[in-house]
Each structure stands twice: as C-alpha cells, then as structure tokens.
Simulated assay, not measured.
Amino acid sequence: MTEDVPVIARPQDELLSIGVFAARARLSPKALRLYDRLGLLEPAHVDEVSGYRYYREDQIEQARTVALLRRLDMPLADIAGMVRLDGERAARSLDVYWAGIEERFAEQRTLAHYLRGRLSGRNAELYATFEVKTVDVPRTHVLSETRHVVAGELPSWIGSSAERLEKAAERCGGMPGPHFVVYHAEVTEESDGPAESCVPVADAEAARAWAAGQGRSSDAKVRLEPAQRLVYTRITKAQVGYPQIIAAYDAVEAWAAERGLTVTGPCREVYFADWESSGPEDEVCDVALPVAVG
C-alpha cells in the first residue's frame, strides 16, 4: 500500500494573476506594478522564479479605492498614507484633503472672475462688486514684526507672526483691536516688500519690555500707529489669496481716486476673523488704505 503524498497548492493556484486581478479591479497591470513600487498595494505573493505578481480577491476593494482616490487627483504619496489608516481616520484624512481642494477652487474661481474683467476691459463693473466704506480708527500702540517676503511665503509668515505677536499681546494687557499687515512696498513673486505684521496692545510699556527681552535677533518692536481714516472693502477667505486680492486693492484705490481722496500711507490687510475656522466664502479681512481727513 503506497502512502498518499499530500499535494501542496501553489500560491498562484489560490490567488489571482496580475492580469485577472487588474481586470477585476478595473486597473491596468502597469498601474498595479506602480502601486506595488510605491507601497500603495502590494501583491499577496511574488513568484521567486518568474517574478509574477499574485493578489488575493479581498484586495480588489483596496485596489478600487486607490483608483477612485486617483480620480480625485490625490497625489500618490497622499494615497499611500491614507491606505495605511483605519476606516474613520482615512475618512477624516479625505475630508482634510477635499477641504483643501474646495478652498483652491474657490480661490481660482475668484481669480478667474477678476481676470475676466481685466481681459474684457470691464474693470469698472468688477470694482462695483466690492462695497467700499470708510472708518476712523483711533491711535494705538502696536507690537510688530517686519519681514522681507515674496508672495509665496506670505501666507505662512502672516499666520506664524500673528500667532507669536498675539501670544505676546496677552501678556501686555490684551489686544484692543485685530491683527493687521502693512505693506511698505509691493509683495509679489518678484518683489519682497517688506511687510509688517502688527498687533495692537493695551499696555505699551509691557510690550516694550517683552520686545527688549527677545534679544537682538528678534524682529519685534513697539511703535505708535496714528489715528487715521481708512478706506476699505471687506473680502472673503477665497479672495485673500494672491493675485486675486489685487482686485480688492484696485477697487479701493479707484473708489478713493474718484472722490479725490489723498492716500497718506501704505496699504494694509486687517484680519478680524479666525482664519482656521472660516470657510472659503466667509468674510475674514478688510483691504484698506489710509486717506487724509477733510
């Protein structure tokens, strides 16, 4: 009587070949090989001799998820991080990614509207979409930080400088007004200002002591901001980005010029709302110019 020899099933007998798996997952073999190299979707088995890749049937859902995320134009590096998360964390990661996409779309839509007006020569119609007003602001001491920055560096610096100055203001009697940024020269991709980030403080002496304690390497200083009249227009978060914010500045300048007002100082942006919690269409900023009174 001969002893039965057990038959060992080969992995490829149990698994799906790359061609079959690609068809089931609605992906190309080329895409699967790329996803393998990037760690997005590793095969369940690779034949040591032939190098053929084999996949489990339960990997089809993951493969389709990767393909769908690519339809959202999500970078492969972001997908690689997301597929390693559990369901809830992956969903939250997708929410963060898509919020960024919607914010960029809102900015681009605003910029396209502005460019349409410029290209068609209907600038006056474009400016009419901005409601321009005036406001008188009292003199106040400000704690400030000045930096040479180009347009691409500006958002990060504005946020970080505001955080530093606002924390300092808490130790200087608080903030009697919102954070604002003064542009002492043009800031574009080619021109670096400088720009000055300012936070009003209630206790000027405490602010001077704080600034002095930061040492020579610090940009912080205390100065008096004079009482003045501002011509301004209120804009949304989507309108703040460069270069679409130029439309707001153009509208304010045109409004002042039509009324014969004399500009007395550099332009500024006054940030009165919490940036992080605001959506693309929420009003967050006043674009303003100081003008002579009377």
Rank of each mutant, 00 (worst) to 15 (best):
L230E: 05
C285R: 02
L115I: 10
T264M: 09
I8D: 12
L16V: 06
S17F: 05
A292L: 13
E225R: 15
L34W: 02
H45S: 12
A257S: 14
D203E: 03
A247H: 01
E103K: 09
H141R: 00
G260C: 04
Y54C: 03
V150M: 09
A254E: 13
A106D: 01
V46Y: 01
L111I: 03
E14M: 15
A248L: 01
R71K: 12
R104S: 09
P200A: 11
Q62F: 05
D36R: 05
E131W: 05
A220S: 09
L126P: 01
G39E: 02
K237D: 04
P155Y: 06
S160C: 05
P176E: 14
V83S: 08
G260E: 02
E190L: 11
S120H: 08
F21G: 00
E253I: 13
V83A: 08
L289A: 04
I8H: 15
S218E: 01
E186N: 10
F180Q: 00
W157R: 08
A238M: 06
R216P: 09
Y271Q: 07
A204T: 05
A44Y: 00
A211H: 04
M175V: 02
L111P: 03
D73Y: 10
E166M: 14
A212W: 11
A185I: 07
T233V: 04
E196M: 07
L115Y: 01
G173S: 09
A292Y: 05
N123V: 14
A206L: 09
Q12N: 13
V49T: 14
D95P: 02
I246R: 01
L94P: 10
D136E: 14
A204L: 07
R109H: 13
F130V: 02
P194Q: 13
W275I: 14
